[in-house]
Write a protein that binds this DNA or RNA. Sequence first.
DNA 1: GTAACTGGATACTTCAAGTATCCAGCCGCA
DNA 2: TGCGGCTGGATACTTGAAGTATCCAGTTAC
Lengths: 223, 223
Amino acid sequence: MKISELSRRTGVPVASIKYFLRQGLLPAGRATAATLAEYGDEHVQRLRLIKALTTLGGLSIAATRDVLGAVDQADSSEGALGAISYALPVPVAAQGAAGPEEEAEADESAAAEVAELLATLEWQAPDTSPHVLGLTAALKELRRLDARYGPGELAAYAALAESVARLDLERAVGVEDPVALAERAVIVFAICAPVFELLRRLAQENQVRRRVAGADADSTPPR
Amino acid sequence: MKISELSRRTGVPVASIKYFLRQGLLPAGRATAATLAEYGDEHVQRLRLIKALTTLGGLSIAATRDVLGAVDQADSSEGALGAISYALPVPVAAQGAAGPEEEAEADESAAAEVAELLATLEWQAPDTSPHVLGLTAALKELRRLDARYGPGELAAYAALAESVARLDLERAVGVEDPVALAERAVIVFAICAPVFELLRRLAQENQVRRRVAGADADSTPPR
DNA sequence: GTAACTGGATACTTCAAGTATCCAGCCGCA
DNA sequence: TGCGGCTGGATACTTGAAGTATCCAGTTAC
């Protein structure tokens, strides 16, 4: 099919498709002449995935390119799932240190807290993992805000996270084709995270409602 | 204190502080003369919160303004927690419909699925809640990607979300001062969400590692 | 008194994410 | 064979967010 039909079938404007081609998110079509190329169903599928990642997953174009790159490597290497996980943007950017001395101390103590958590849970992760670094940065900042996690609280969250991750993994098993598996993994990792966040918000809302109603029989819904 | 000291104490450049003042994120200092104003500890605290929300929480300036506005209303109204929850950006933007006919059908069926979930869990939420709308949009898109949740899977996630929300709420109780409570709630809602996401990623990584090791004794770490 | 600093307004910069325009080449149809 | 309308590709332009920088008149500490 030509670009105009690709556009019609996916609802993505032609100019945007060209943009994605330029950015390397979408492989070029099979050129049949100097000014003509043929696109296939795989382009439709890929375009849908791009749309889902950017709109639902909230990924930037650059992050989407990295993630899709990991997907395309997936047929060869076994660590595809890990590569995809690492390609996804970390929700907490580890910023550089500000104060030169007391910073280091806070940094170290947050790192120790993370290390202890990982040891307790018997989770393995390299110290250089972006997730470990992000977690450290977050704990440090929470401490500065006087809102650190109480003892055991972080472990309780981690235990729930493990349950969630188990569900995630279950959704991915049973897919045999490595490329399809990689795509499924991307969807589970990138799109189901916001879904869980929504569920959490709804649950919070409900608990607040229940608590308010229980406290003073005021059944006013939030706002 | 003057603006330069406020800058020194928080590490935020003077120009940025002025920007935040312009954007209404930070209340103006108490003017002592035409070109002089006095800032206090509350400005330091507020600035820290702004930094945490934008860098750790990933909020935009506009979202941060909305959230802080909800915090400032918190001393008066009771539904402060709900207002804050609604002021936070929804991770899934509900996009407008593309195709005029079959879209509506998919939309409806996704909405029905969400309604059923809420009914099963005995969660109450207005149909117009941004969280409900976002969830509907996400389910619709997942269906289009052939990656819908299996029966019961969504409920399983929701049950875990409820446990997480319970932990969230526990972290907020015990704070009496309404303003402090609102600030705590913002931190819990906006910053602990990324933290949980990090924990989930670490857990995923670990499960993948374990699974790979178990499957073929290949202990290669991801990437 | 004057150099350095301040608050406030306005202009400028940078980046991401598209959109729009232009151009030559090609396709189908008369 | 001619030709209007598409096509791929390159390049230029637009928009919005998030700061930065500059300017200016008032103030303050030495």
